[in-house]
Simulated assay, not measured.
Amino acid sequence: MVLITLLGLIYAVAQVLVPCLPPAPLSSEVLSTDKYLGKWYYIGVASWKDEDIDSYKSVDNSVAELKKGENNTLIMAAALQQNDQCNNMAWTYQAYPNFGPLMIEGGERYGLFFDGEWIKCSSCLIVAKFHPNTGYLRVMLFARSENTSDDLVNKFKSKMKCGDIIDKFVISPRTKEFCQLEGTG
């Protein structure tokens, strides 16, 4: 326990000294609290390759819900307004105690969740998905409010561009009505 506390302190100091360093990921226990469970609105996605985010170019908007599942899982269900249709999808993240905050999605992809404080947004959630064998990476921004400011989008882009690694973005235009999440009323 002392080692974990010491590593946390070192990481906190490193974040001040290296502004590009992402925040510490959130554990599944933290994500299972009222602060993170519930409804989220998709804002945009970033990556280092266009092909990793091309499918988001046809998404006008999306509303998602983070729920606690059974057997150490978190489920993110979403209703996407895509190509003038409502598409409902769900992703299951399996948490394993030995993996810390790293969660497995579908056996081959990994997910990490970050607090929005990194971009000075206490009502935001950042979700990073990656596939280590293919180099696939997506970093998605969600907010509690369906109304998003340009300032928030600019902060997200700025943090993602820090270090000149992630420079591809698709931001949701939100020109259409949000779809209804199935099973949530």
Rank of each mutant, 00 (worst) to 15 (best):
L3T: 11
L6N: 08
I10A: 05
Y11I: 01
V13Q: 06
V13W: 02
V16R: 00
V16F: 00
C20Q: 00
P25Q: 07
L26P: 00
S27H: 07
S28M: 13
S28C: 15
E29Q: 08
L31E: 02
L31V: 01
K35H: 00
L37G: 00
W40K: 01
G44E: 03
V45N: 06
S47G: 08
K49C: 06
K49G: 05
D50K: 15
D52P: 09
D52C: 14
I53A: 09
Y56K: 14
Y56F: 15
Y56A: 11
S58V: 09
S58K: 12
V63H: 08
E65I: 14
K67D: 05
K68G: 02
E70G: 03
E70C: 03
N72S: 12
N72A: 05
T73S: 04
L74D: 04
L74P: 03
L74V: 03
L74H: 03
I75R: 01
M76L: 13
A78Q: 04
A79P: 00
A79R: 00
L80G: 05
Q81H: 10
Q82H: 10
D84M: 09
D84N: 15
Q85F: 07
Q85N: 14
Q85W: 14
Q85S: 14
C86N: 04
N87D: 09
N88L: 07
M89H: 11
W91I: 10
Y93W: 10
Y93P: 03
A95P: 03
A95T: 06
Y96W: 13
P97F: 01
P97N: 01
F99Y: 15
P101D: 05
L102D: 00
L102R: 06
M103V: 03
M103Q: 06
I104N: 13
I104D: 08
G107P: 11
G107H: 08
E108N: 14
E108A: 12
Y110N: 15
G111Y: 08
D115H: 02
E117D: 14
W118A: 05
W118Y: 11
C121N: 04
S122D: 14
S123A: 13
L125F: 03
L125N: 00
I126E: 02
V127N: 06
V127I: 13
F130Y: 15
F130T: 09
F130G: 09
H131M: 08
H131F: 13
N133V: 12
N133R: 15
T134I: 12
T134R: 08
G135T: 05
G135C: 07
R138L: 13
L141N: 07
L141C: 07
R144L: 02
R144V: 00
R144Y: 03
R144W: 00
N147M: 11
N147V: 15
T148W: 10
T148Y: 12
S149D: 03
S149R: 04
D150L: 08
D151E: 15
L152G: 05
N154S: 15
F156V: 05
S158A: 11
K159Q: 07
M160D: 01
D164H: 12
D164W: 02
I165D: 07
I165P: 02
D167N: 13
K168M: 07
V170D: 08
S172D: 11
P173M: 04
T175E: 12
E177I: 08
E177L: 10
E182Y: 05
